[in-house]
Amino acid sequence: MFLITAVSAAQAADFSHLQQASVTFRRAGKRYGDRQVLSGVDLHIESGEVVAIIGPSGSGKSTLIRLINQLENLSEGEIFVDNRPTAGLSGAGLRQLRSRIGFVFQQFNLYAHLTALHNISVPLQVVHGWKKAAAQQRAHELLVHVGLADKASHLPSQLSGGQQQRVAIARALASSPQIILFDEPTSALDPEMIGEVLQVMKSLAQSGITMIVVTHEMQFAREIADRVVFIDGGEILEVASPARFFRQPTHPRAQRFLKKVLDPLHQDFFS
């Protein structure tokens, strides 16, 4: 079970102003040369839904979410955001799509030469055309929300891994996206730092924004997600509520996966 660090009321994230959007995959696939990474993906994610994508390493989880904002390009099939096709977008159309979708990476991807505040405000100025004062005000508000107001002037090298990831989450939220994608956001963190990031994500999930989270944190998926999507070999093998998936997974591969990854002390998942 993960640990949640205590945060004060002033630090608790309030993202209630964020909007929502749906995502639909229709027979979506991705190939690298002769290697099929994803195949025949059919999945609809409702507006405001929190979906956890889980499965073994190399199963196609990260590729699945990177297709949504075209960090990877589809090889076949279609993806829709709010019933609008995303295939073939470029230029202003692609920029508009990406402005609606926040992305949080495994390795933070912060600019080493910029402070925490400037890591959030500068992209708003350069990419979205915000005025400097407005961008910095927005950055400060988000740092308050993720409990890092006192770290605004710190460089990434002066922050812990958990703090860097919280800055990255704030940056992803800066343009008020309708969807936020997480690609294993705690995988690069020491165990003692995971809780502070999960706490921010938990607050965000309660706000109603659409969240798609690739994660190895089974307890987080169980407690926060509306649905769990299990992927292996580039195919979706099971989609279920956390209550059913963690207690009675139906696909044999999902059963084997859970028995392998869950701590023996927590076998009540199956009880």
Rank of each mutant, 00 (worst) to 15 (best):
F2C: 02
I4P: 00
I4C: 00
T5N: 09
S8D: 14
A9K: 10
A10L: 09
A10E: 14
A10I: 05
Q11N: 12
D14S: 14
S16H: 14
A21G: 09
V23A: 10
F25I: 12
G29D: 14
R31Y: 13
Y32S: 12
G33M: 11
D34W: 05
R35G: 03
R35W: 09
V37M: 07
G40F: 02
V41C: 13
D42H: 06
L43R: 08
E46Y: 03
E46D: 13
G48Q: 08
G48E: 06
E49N: 07
E49H: 08
E49G: 10
E49M: 07
A52C: 10
I53G: 03
I54A: 08
G58R: 05
G60Q: 05
K61Y: 10
S62H: 07
T63V: 14
T63G: 05
L64E: 07
I65F: 06
L71R: 07
E72F: 10
N73E: 15
V81F: 10
V81A: 13
N83P: 00
R84K: 14
R84L: 15
R84E: 15
A87R: 15
S90W: 07
G91S: 12
A92L: 11
G93C: 08
R95C: 07
Q96S: 14
L97I: 03
R98G: 11
R100Q: 15
R100G: 11
F103Y: 15
F103S: 04
F105A: 08
Q106G: 10
F108M: 05
A112M: 02
H113Y: 11
T115C: 04
A116Y: 00
L117Y: 00
L124Q: 06
Q125P: 01
W130G: 01
K131A: 15
A134W: 01
A135V: 04
Q137N: 13
A139L: 06
H140G: 08
L143V: 03
V144K: 13
V144D: 15
S153Y: 09
S157F: 07
S157R: 14
S160R: 02
G162R: 03
Q164Y: 09
Q164H: 06
I169F: 04
A170N: 01
A170G: 03
A172H: 01
L173C: 10
S175E: 09
Q178A: 13
I179P: 00
I179N: 04
I180D: 03
L181A: 07
F182D: 05
T186A: 06
S187D: 11
E192R: 03
I194C: 06
G195I: 02
G195P: 01
E196W: 01
V197I: 02
L198S: 04
M201F: 02
Q206W: 02
Q206Y: 05
S207R: 04
G208Q: 10
I209P: 00
I209Q: 03
T210I: 03
T210D: 13
V213E: 07
Q219W: 04
Q219Y: 10
F220H: 06
R222S: 15
R227H: 14
I231Q: 08
G233D: 11
G233S: 08
G234H: 04
V239N: 07
S241W: 08
F245T: 02
Q248R: 11
Q248Y: 09
P249I: 15
A254V: 01
A254W: 01
Q255D: 06
R256F: 05
R256V: 04
K260W: 04
V261N: 03
L262T: 12
D263V: 03
H266Y: 15
D268C: 02
F269C: 11
F270L: 06
F270P: 05
